[in-house]
Each structure stands twice: as structure tokens, then as C-alpha cells.
């Protein structure tokens, strides 16, 4: 067993072990790593926002291209700092209103297009495309029935009885299969992360695996 001589690898390995120590029970090592993780992640978020949002949309337009129009959203954005003032705290409603108004207005049409019309097109297209034939057409029809049944489960404007109840029950079956698939995918994603960490410890840190 030959340990790594890279101090950064040691830092990563020790922090990984600190977090894994939670599997035994909560302890000071885990608590330290947990708190450090929160701080470092928040700091990383600040740096990412600064470099990807403030630099290209405020610093570069104003100081490099001399487009002073971008000072306005900068000033509006800075109004969020009024959150820390007891007297002028209400002024943060201005940038909030700008954000909500613009994002709501910009979002409606693309949402209808992507989440509703496109999905409808694909669902109806798969179930009616005579060209594909065979099993593909059968599964297209099953998908179509599944979508209608799932939607009927979420239809609460009428009491669920008779045909609506039957449809809603079929909808529950589809939803449960969908949740099962999501659960399976999530578990596998977590396990692949675990494999990655164990591989790091055994390969990069103690060099057991070459």
C-alpha cells in the first residue's frame, strides 16, 4: 500500500472519509465536513454568479464596450441590498417585480409550446403514425392511453367515479411505474457516485488499484 504524496489528494481523501463517517453515527468529523461543504458550496455559487452573470452582463458591457445602458439593471439588482435596511426594506420589491414580470411574461409562451403542445404532438404522433406499424404503433397507443389516464388522475374538477375512476386507477399504475423508474435511476446514480468515491480512495489515495 503506497499512499499518495499529493497533499490535495490527502485533503480530498480525508474530507471524503469525514463524510462517510456519518454511516457509523453523527460525529465531530462529519459535522466539520458538513459545515465546510455548505460554506464552500455557497462561496462557489457566489464566484460562479459573479463570473458568469455579473462580469459578462455588467462589467464587460459597461467598462469594455462602454454600453452604459447596462448600469440600469446593475442598479436595479443592487436594490436587493435594501433587504438589510429596516426603513428601506420595501425597495427590494422593485427588483423582485422586474424579475417576476419579465420571467412570467417571457415564460408563458415557451412553456405552452414545450410542455403542452410539443408533448401533445409527440403523444398523438406516436399513436397515429401508421408508417411505423407493428409494436411501435401498439406502444404508441399504450403511451397515449397512459397520458390520458395520468391526466385523468389529476383531474379534480369532478368527483372521481364511474369511467373517470377507472381511468384514474389506470393512471395510478402508470404513475407508479414512472416513480419506480425514477427511483431506480436515482439509486443507480447514487451508487455510481459511491463507486467513484471508493475508486478515488483506492486508486488515487492508497494506490491499491492501478
Amino acid at each position: 500500500m503506497i499512499f499518495s504524496t499529493n497533499p490535495w489528494v490527502w485533503v480530498a481523501a480525508i474530507l471524503t472519509l469525514c463524510i462517510f463517517s456519518f454511516l457509523y453515527r453523527e460525529n465531530p468529523f462529519y459535522r466539520f465536513a458538513e459545515h465546510l461543504f455548505v460554506g464552500v458550496s455557497a462561496g462557489y455559487g457566489v464566484a460562479v454568479y459573479f463570473n458568469n452573470a455579473i462580469m459578462p452582463n455588467l462589467y464587460v458591457p459597461v467598462f469594455v464596450h462602454h454600453d452604459y445602458l447596462f448600469i440600469i439593471p446593475g442598479l436595479i439588482g443592487m436594490m436587493f441590498f435594501f433587504r438589510f435596511s429596516s426603513k428601506l426594506g420595501f425597495l427590494i420589491l422593485i427588483p423582485l417585480a422586474m424579475l417576476l414580470g419579465m420571467s412570467s411574461g417571457m415564460g408563458i409562451a415557451p412553456t405552452i409550446q414545450a410542455d403542452i403542445i410539443r408533448q401533445m404532438q409527440s403523444t398523438i404522433g406516436d399513436a397515429t403514425s401508421a408508417g411505423q406499424g407493428g409494436w411501435a404503433l401498439v406502444w404508441g397507443i399504450v403511451t397515449f392511453i397512459g397520458v390520458i389516464a395520468t391526466l385523468s388522475y389529476f383531474f379534480f374538477s369532478r368527483e372521481q367515479k364511474g369511467a373517470l375512476k377507472v381511468s384514474a386507477n389506470i393512471g395510478i399504475w402508470f404513475i407508479m411505474i414512472g416513480f419506480g423508474a425514477s427511483f431506480g435511476n436515482t439509486v443507480m446514480a447514487r451508487i455510481s457516485l459511491l463507486i467513484g468515491r471508493v475508486q478515488f480512495l483506492l486508486t488515487d489515495w492508497i494506490h491499491i488499484i492501478k
Partner: peptide, 27 residues
């Protein structure tokens, strides 16, 4: 591709309608 897609599409419809309704309510 089949039952999971059907459920996700049904849920996505609901999400789309929810976003649209909430946006309109805010505006």
C-alpha cells in the same frame, strides 16, 4: 420509453399548465 414516458408526459402537462396559470396570476 412507454409507461414511464406516459406518466412523465402527463405530469409535464400538469406542470406546464401550472406554470402558465401561476404566471398569469402573478401578472
Amino acid at each position: 420509453m412507454v409507461p414511464n414516458m406516459a406518466a412523465k408526459r402527463g405530469i409535464l402537462f400538469g406542470v406546464g399548465l401550472g406554470i402558465t396559470a401561476t404566471s398569469l396570476k402573478i401578472i
